[in-house]
């Protein structure tokens, strides 16, 4: 589960003092139980990406307490944070694929960082490549793929290690309706298996098709939790 209490976050602007640094999030408090699914809503600049960064442990809150999968982030040592990150999957809005690695190796990264045996890595990656419909593109490099294909690779990489927490920033942006629906079915299955999921999106049609608990942000504040 994840728990936030009065969490605030300021960007560490170069040359700016702590007081004058831009504020991204103010006094955010909410909880998501294990296996819970939340839509993360709000206009651009509302703080959705900043919140996902905090939850992905890519930054630390500047105030308040953040608890991820039972660990307090403020008190965790670097090695403990690294272990925690291995239990999190992230679908970035800009995909963040490594351009010089083939699709297969991009997807295999989380498993290899967990030192899984290569046989297991190969089986798992081929299995998920089949699922995302990219089995024939395993040796292609990301720059050779379309936007939709790159997004599917990013999704495959985020879920291949069956994370306990899955964070997705506009994961259906480059997908057609069929692929978007398949992705939502996958999220539903993962949630049923105990994965806590937060999905930031502007896709109203998708939200209507898959109604769920919503967290709405505006100007760095949580407006709605329900």
């Amino acid at each position: 589960m994840i728990r936030l209490r009065d969490v605030g976050f300021r960007y560490d602007a170069a040359g700016a003092s702590a007081a004058s640094a831009p504020v991204a999030l103010r006094q955010i408090s909410f909880e998501v139980p294990q296996g819970g699914f939340r839509w993360l809503l709000g206009p651009s600049g509302a703080g959705k990406s900043s919140l996902l960064r905090l939850l992905a442990l890519a930054a630390r809150p500047t105030s308040g307490t953040l608890e991820i999968l039972g660990s307090s982030v403020a008190q965790a040592r670097r090695a403990a944070l690294a272990r925690l990150r291995r239990r999190i999957g992230v679908v970035h809005q800009d995909f963040r694929l490594l351009p010089d690695l083939p699709v297969f190796d991009n997807i295999a990264l989380p498993l290899r960082l967990q030192h899984r045996p290569e046989d297991e890595v190969r089986d798992e990656v081929h299995s998920i490549l089949d699922w995302v419909g990219l089995a024939s593109r395993a040796t292609a490099r990301p720059p050779q793929l379309s936007g939709g294909e790159q997004q599917r690779v990013a999704i495959a990489r985020a879920v291949i290690h069956r994370p306990a927490l899955l964070l997705a920033d506009e994961p259906t942006n480059a997908l057609d309706e069929y692929q978007a629906n398949r992705l939502m079915e996958l999220f539903r299955d993962l949630s049923g298996l105990g994965t806590t999921i937060l999905v930031a999106t502007h896709n109203d049609a998708l939200i209507r098709r898959y109604p769920a608990h919503e967290l709405e942000l505006a100007q760095g504040r949580l407006l709605r939790d329900g």
């Binding site: 442990l57 670097r78 090695a79 690294a82 990150r85 239990r87 960082l113």
Partner: peptide
């Protein structure tokens, strides 16, 4: 990227 995925220092 690999640091964000849990690679230790």
């Amino acid at each position: 990227l690999i640091h964000a995925m849990g690679a230790t220092d």
